[in-house]
């Protein structure tokens, strides 16, 4: 009778750091950690730089005054701040109803047929269209043709260009949010005699409110920071906004215009506007995160 010698020798249960697998483990952990640090580095560099350059310029006057004429000092970005809100509001008023409606159609009515597949694909492509192309399109369709009471550059045209940028995000999050609502819930509503319309508006849509709101907020955050579609649609104005059918100043275009001017006052306003814009967009993203956490509770 022979005793069986084990083919694999049992070693100590304690961790041996010099083993090949353990050394590789540490190496790859370090590499992956390093790359992830590099990935977030730009975010912190940009934030720190903008805070240092723009943060010190924050004052009451910044929010209440017009930009100064070239060569003069002081002034603020009050008109651009209002302008950004106006243009984003116009964009939201267009993109939210259309986007949420489109998302409802895709998720609830379309039965995922070829038409719905086509819309989904088109929507994904629209999400990848460069923003300047949205601007050129609106310029060609609305600004150059002067459809708004003979006006060429208008806040409304700028809002439309931004709406095109917002749409894909809103449609996609609405579609996906609605499809995440358990089927049993809508079955329950239909089982007590609710029509499809009542089921969607009273049961499914409220259940998907949080993902939809998150998508809308993210869409607004993206639109508010865009410059390219606004340069030749909303243009710019050194004056207070005069309604949506006139050119309007926005913070992103103000930054674009003032950052390259040979005047210190304008350059400083560009930095201040950058700071305000970054804070607003950061705030919107945090709001979206908060909404998401609210949903998972």
């Amino acid at each position: 009778m022979t005793t069986l010698t084990p083919a694999i020798k049992h070693s100590s249960l304690c961790l041996n750091p010099s083993l090949r697998r353990n050394r590789l483990d540490r190496l790859f952990t370090t590499i992956a950690g390093g790359f992830s640090l590099i990935a977030v580095l730009p975010l912190f560099l940009v934030l720190i730089y903008v805070i240092l350059q723009g943060g010190r310029l924050i004052s009451i006057n910044l929010f209440t005054q017009l930009p100064p004429a070239p060569g003069l000092d002081g002034g603020g970005i009050g008109n651009a701040l209002i302008g950004t809100f106006v243009v984003t509001l116009v964009a939201s008023l267009i993109a939210i109803p259309v986007g949420v409606g489109g998302g409802i159609f895709l998720a609830e009515y379309s039965k995922s047929g070829p038409f719905a597949q086509f819309i989904r694909l088109g929507n994904d492509i629209l999400a990848g269209v460069p923003s300047i192309i949205c601007g050129v399109f609106v310029y060609g369709a609305i600004v150059a043709t002067r459809v708004f009471f003979g006006q060429s550059y208008t806040a409304a045209a700028g809002g439309m260009a931004l709406a095109i940028l917002m749409l894909p995000t809103v449609i996609k999050t609405t579609d996906e949010g609605l499809r995440l609502v358990p089927k049993a819930l809508s079955m329950g509503a239909i089982g007590v005699g609710a029509s499809k319309f009542v089921t969607i508006t009273r049961i499914t849509l409220p259940s998907a409110f949080t993902p939809i709101a998150t998508g809308v907020v993210l869409g607004i955050a993206r639109a508010a920071g865009e410059t390219a579609p606004l340069i030749f649609t909303a243009l710019f104005s050194p004056f207070w906004p005069e309604g949506v059918f006139n050119p309007i100043a926005t913070m992103s275009v103000l930054i674009y215009n003032f950052a390259i001017m040979p005047f210190d006052a304008q350059n400083e306003l560009a930095w201040a506007a950058s700071f305000v814009l970054v804070v607003l967009i950061l705030g919107a993203n945090l709001l979206a995160r908060w909404l998401r956490r609210f949903a998972s509770m």
């Binding site: 329950g188 029509s195 259940s207």
Partner: peptide, 19 residues
Amino acid sequence: PVEVRRRIGMVFQQPNPFP
């Protein structure tokens, strides 16, 4: 069919109260 379901109600396998 909506009228049919109003007169013939249904209870499902998984309890599904509305939120």
